[in-house]
Design a binder for these strands. Structure first.
Lengths: 133, 133
DNA sequence: CTGAATCCTTATAGATACTG
DNA sequence: CAGTATCTATAAGGATTCAG
């Protein structure tokens, strides 16, 4: 399980620069525009393609296809296709995908907790730098 | 706003449909290429501009400037400039920044725990789809 | 040393039309 | 319904130069 509640888990001289501590790996996967939204929606239960499309407003068919495929490829989502007419495809999180969704939800917690403080900070910053180019 | 014209403007994705859980908010902030790396480096202690540049290999001066400025603006990092010659500028995490770094470290934990499983999954997927376009 | 100002390349994603 | 296939727009990031 997790370690270190006292600070960021890092090695003393910290190779978080050269080949980092795994942070870039996750972000390369969920850092895009749609992945987490699909992930979070699937965390609510099994969804069909069209259901996902409606549940994630603004996503294009193309991006949903690419996003789900990447998630499947990474073993985070399982795809089940039924040879019916019209076709029917179900997506569901794998256990690994669910654990990622869980970890991501923690970040969302952080966001909600600090949203106001950050907006205040931005307000102050913008006010203090209102003159500069 | 005065930051916009310099280049970095992570486009807001808008509310995540019915319930914006805050996930997009965080990712719009740390989902870029450099922010978390700088964040994690600063979690190790106070750093000067050049120290950061060396500690985060591959980052350009421009991106380091933009990244630190954004972090400062959001109240995650505090900047202290000394009017020496040559100039000397120190960056350090605020408590809020430290708490974000902590949350991000949890995600890194997840990554390390599942890195192998994901690579296996990708290997299987690629093998199973070796023929298709 | 710590930036700011420009120009330029390339990922990423949006729009649209087509298909089994 | 669940995708493919193109084409295009945009902005994120890189390289370089200049400045306090």
């Amino acid at each position: 399980m997790s370690v270190a509640h006292t600070g960021v888990t890092l090695q003393p001289t910290g190779p978080c620069g050269d080949d980092d501590c795994g942070i870039r790996d996750v972000l390369d996967r969920i850092g895009d525009k749609w992945t987490v939204l699909v992930l979070v929606e699937l965390a609510k239960g099994v969804r069909r393609f069209r259901e996902l499309e409606r549940a994630v407003p603004g996503i294009s068919q193309r991006m949903l296809t690419l996003t789900t495929r990447r998630l499947c490829r990474d073993g985070l989502v399982e795809r089940t296709a039924y040879a019916t007419i019209p076709p029917q495809v179900e997506y569901r999180l794998t256990p690994m995908g669910a654990s990622l969704a869980e970890a991501v939800a923690r970040l969302a917690d952080w966001s909600r907790e600090h949203k106001d403080a950050m907006e205040d900070a931005r307000g102050r910053w913008d006010a203090a730098h209102a003159d500069e180019p």
